[in-house]
Nucleic acid binder design. Structure first.
Lengths: 204, 204, 204, 204
DNA sequence: CATGAATGAGTCTTCATTCAT
DNA sequence: AATGAATGAAGACTCATTCAT
């Protein structure tokens, strides 16, 4: 069926790009983008070294696209999955736990967010819209603002809550990664929730 | 007088070591330890390149000692300066604001804590006692535990509060560094305090 | 009509080969054969990269054929166009000016002769008969020999005159190319002619 | 004798730079600067690859300095050695023959002038004063102008003569290099001289 | 101790060439 | 014939580290 050829080809190209991107995310996350080499990425993706340059302009370009990929799939995925939660604060908790789940499932992505997203200032400056942490902060700020407007919580500074939530999330996952996963993140998550919950609750 | 020579010499040695350490902290913080070269450090310290290797075994060794230096002077300095505050929660707020002051005064140290302390896993694994973030977390945990014991706040998970406080502190300063210092950290600090204060307050 | 297909196809093949050759000449001349890539040539010819290898064995092979092409069309063209000039010295002058005209019209060909023809020693050694400069030298030598035989000029060394004429021609065009075309080649041509004319004139 | 240490050191550095420069000139000349690698140069100079970068910024920088070196020693040397010849035309002939001698003695330098000096347009554009061919042309033009002013030859265009002389010189040496040294350059030199001599001689 | 020239392993990147479609 | 993705050898350049002075 020749009709299928074109889509197959395209799929092939698309697949290889994805393949490289995923390999790069993992390799960059494991070794850090500075220590990781293009050869590592190519090896991980089981392609020749030069192939990386068929799909990406440079190592830096590859790193940028890794960030985009993570945001567009993982980060946005987490945010979207919380959409149906009606209570705003529950939504934030849901968000927190989805993130925790992501960290557990794909720790290398966590490392990306915890380390690369901070480190690579080139990226941060050039693509402010593509920084995972900023994306998270914006999301929390928005949800918090809605919660305040709908009188679900008392009037607090939305940015402060965002920094508290994302900051703790961030350090929790970093801690978990660095500490050889000894921490019980789920429990920690609930306890953080309790404190914040009390902190923003309407005065009875 | 040869008797004086020895102490003078020792002082000389000590000074040059300090000189190198301070130069390294600044250079590593500015460029990131990966991009910074030993030549950069030597230049900053106005010594010959080879001199660095007289006082430190390797680039990594130098980096480790930078961390130690920061903890032993800056981090411990901040913690010690809060010693006389009797109310534990006030002490934590004091601690938060001292850290903010440090960030403003020596931004490169902030960068060190926000970026290098996370990135350098070699360091983290080998010297768990010398990671600024862990040091901070421990400090907050201890103070919180005391606060609970003395019934100043309700019984919460000390670790959760530590993660909230240090995590928000950390992301605030990172944000401030990356965001070209547009944020008003002092105000943010107070608003974070309000939330946490309500979150841990004894139920009336 | 299948009878037509074959010639048409052949024309097609011929055309694509010519197309590639002309693209290559221009690209090699502009960038220099070392900096120019096969991809550049393919792009210029608006064919796929791999197509180049359908018609030529290698980059070097392509370069060799560029030389041949230039000699067989441009260089021989110039020489042939001077055929009807009966006076031999006038013919050489005509030749000089035809070459100047070529340089002005297709500067990239000039660059080819001035630079590539010298540089590519592989070519020179393997195809002594296909070097533009050698071709020119031979031509001038022949014409000069005829001029001497027919007593139009005094007895001089034909090779010496050839070297003078072609050498000056060559450096003039190189100068013109490098000097951003500031030189008035026509005037220079006439003045060179005057000197050579006097130099070879029969003693009155 | 410690007094000697400093000069020896300096001499050491100077020598290594010269060593590298000479190695580079030979390597670049033999292979062409495009085919020659930094590793080739280092090997020729019997130093480590990295040492080249201690003394030169880049391959291009090294090439530029090769040109300067050649001009400042060889080219100027030739020009200076003709200074005492009082008759201007004799001086030019002397110049020609000195150049021939140089070619015979250090053929790789000839290749440099004949090939690299033309090819490397970066160099030509950025350092017009450092192109051997331009240097030669200027010299011949000057001497010719003097010859005309002092009535030693008839009034001709100095630039035209310069182009004739340098152009023929250039092609002669290129020919000699490419043609595996079959040509008798000395004889050719004399014959070229005869023609030019007649071409510029005062009319009796 | 101090110096900084020398080293060479390690990296990114390019590009001629191949080959499955 | 035509295509262009894939390949990997090759080369410029960097920089931590050493060591003779």
């Amino acid at each position: 069926m020749p009709r299928n050829n074109v889509p197959l080809r395209k799929a092939g190209r698309q697949n290889k790009r994805e393949l490289l991107l995923n390999a790069a995310i993992e390799v960059f996350a494991r070794k850090g983008s500075n220590q990781a080499t293009i050869a590592d990425v190519a090896k991980k993706a089981r392609v020749a070294l030069g192939t990386v340059y068929v799909y990406f302009d440079s190592k830096d370009d590859l790193l940028q696209h890794c960030m985009k990929e993570i945001i567009e799939t993982e980060i946005n995925g987490i945010i979207n999955r919380t959409a149906e939660v009606s209570n705003h604060m529950d939504r934030l908790y849901e968000f927190f736990m989805h993130h925790v789940a992501l960290v557990k499932e794909k720790p290398y992505i966590a490392r990306f967010i915890a380390v690369e997203a901070r480190q690579n200032e080139n990226f941060i400056r050039r693509n402010p819209g593509y920084n995972p942490l900023l994306k998270y902060l914006d999301f929390v700020k928005e949800v918090t603002t809605s919660a305040i407007q709908e009188n679900q919580i008392k009037t607090i500074d939305a940015e402060a809550l965002a920094l508290l939530l994302v900051g703790s999330m961030d350090i929790v996952l970093w801690n978990w990664l660095a500490g050889e996963n000894e921490m019980d993140i789920d429990t920690i998550g609930q306890r953080i929730r309790q404190i914040l919950h009390a902190g923003v609750a309407l005065v009875s």
